[in-house]
C-alpha cells in the first residue's frame, strides 16, 4: 500500500499539463510577440467602433489626401477624404472574419475528408485524395478568382472561396495523422470492445490527431488573410466602400508618389499581422511537439 500511496502523490505533480503549454508558449519570445499581435488584432476588430475616430466610409471631398496627423486624422485621409486610421481599424474586422471563417470552413470539410480517406483507406482514399490533388493543382489565387467569379462578390463568398482553397491542405494533414494514429493499439482495443466506426473516429482517432491540425490551422489563418487582401486588391473581394486592407492597398497604389502612406499603412498592417500569426504558429508547433520538451 505504501507504494500505491507514493504513486498517488507523484500523480498530483503531473496535473499541470495545460498550464505548461501556455508557459512554454510565453517563454518563447517570438511566440509571445505573435500572440500579442493576434490579441491586438482581435481586440481592434471587436472594439473598432470605439477605436475609430471617424466613420470609415464617410467621404469628405474637401479633405482628400491629407498627411499623417493632419486636421485630427491620425493617419491622414485617402483620395475620397476618408479617415485612413478608421478604415484600418474596420479593415481588421474583415481580415479576422475572413481569416477565421475561411480556415474554419476549410478545416471542417478538409478534416472530414482527410479522416475518411485515412481511416477507411482503399477506394475512399484514392478518390478523395485524387480530387484534393486536382484541387491543389490550381494556383491558390487563380482558384479563388475562379470561384469568386462563379459565386459572385460578397463577404460570405470570399470566405467560401478561400475556404475551398484551404480544403486540400487540411485533408492532407489530417489524413497523414490518421494513418499513423489508426495503427495504434488503443484503436484496436476500441474495435475489440465493439465500438462503431463513427465512435472510433470522433472519440479516438480525431482527438489524437488534433495537435498538427491546430498548428496548421493557425498558419492557414495568415494565408487566408493574405488571400482576402489579394482578392480585394483585385476588386473581387468585399464590395466597396466597405474597408478592407486589400482594397485600401488598391486605392493607395494610384497615389504611391503623391501620398505613399495611403498604400504603405495597410501594407504594413498586413505584414505585421501575417508575421505575428506565423510566429505564433511556429511557437505553438514547438510547444505541442513532445520531442522539444524542455
Amino acid at each position: 500500500m505504501a507504494e500505491s500511496q507514493a504513486i498517488l502523490q507523484a500523480s498530483d505533480v503531473v496535473e499541470t499539463n495545460e498550464r505548461s503549454l501556455f508557459k512554454k508558449l510565453i517563454r518563447n519570445r517570438f511566440a509571445a510577440f505573435g500572440l500579442f499581435i493576434m490579441l491586438l488584432l482581435i481586440l481592434t476588430a471587436i472594439f473598432a467602433p470605439i477605436l475609430a475616430t471617424h466613420s470609415p466610409d464617410k467621404m469628405n471631398v474637401t479633405k482628400t489626401l491629407l498627411g499623417i496627423g493632419a486636421e485630427g486624422h491620425l493617419l491622414g485621409t485617402d483620395n475620397y477624404g476618408r479617415d485612413i486610421f478608421s478604415r484600418l481599424v474596420y479593415g481588421a474586422r474583415i481580415s479576422i472574419l475572413v481569416g477565421l471563417g475561411a480556415v474554419l470552413f476549410g478545416a471542417v470539410i478538409g478534416s472530414l475528408l482527410g479522416v475518411i480517406a485515412g481511416y477507411f483507406g482503399g477506394k475512399f482514399d484514392s478518390i478523395i485524395m485524387r480530387i484534393m490533388d486536382g484541387l491543389s493543382a490550381f494556383p491558390f489565387i487563380l482558384l479563388a478568382i475562379t470561384l469568386m467569379s462563379v459565386l459572385g462578390q460578397g463577404l460570405l463568398n470570399v470566405i467560401i472561396a478561400i475556404g475551398i482553397g484551404n480544403i486540400p491542405g487540411f485533408a492532407r494533414v489530417v489524413r497523414g495523422q490518421v494513418l499513423s494514429v489508426k495503427q495504434s493499439e488503443y484503436i484496436e482495443v476500441t474495435r475489440s470492445l465493439g465500438a462503431k466506426h463513427g465512435r472510433i473516429i470522433f472519440h479516438h482517432v480525431l482527438p489524437n490527431s488534433i495537435a498538427p491540425l491546430i498548428v496548421y490551422a493557425t498558419m492557414s489563418i495568415a494565408g487566408a488573410i493574405i488571400s482576402e487582401a489579394s482578392l480585394s486588391f483585385l476588386g473581387l473581394g468585399v464590395q466597396p466602400p466597405t474597408a478592407s486592407w486589400g482594397s485600401m492597398l488598391q486605392d493607395g497604389k494610384n497615389f504611391l508618389v503623391l501620398n505613399p502612406h495611403m498604400a504603405t499603412i495597410p501594407g504594413l498592417a498586413i505584414l505585421i499581422t501575417v508575421v505575428g500569426i506565423n510566429l505564433f504558429g511556429d511557437g505553438l508547433r514547438d510547444a505541442l511537439d513532445p520531442k522539444m520538451k524542455v
Partner: peptide, 24 residues
C-alpha cells in the same frame, strides 16, 4: 459482430503502454 466484441468475447493486448488512449 460488434455486439459480441467486448460483450461476449473480449481481448487483452500485448503492450499495456500503448493499449490505452492517451487523451482520455
Amino acid at each position: 459482430m460488434r455486439d459480441i466484441r467486448g460483450n461476449d468475447i473480449s481481448m487483452i493486448f500485448q503492450d499495456p503502454l500503448t493499449s490505452l488512449n492517451p487523451v482520455f
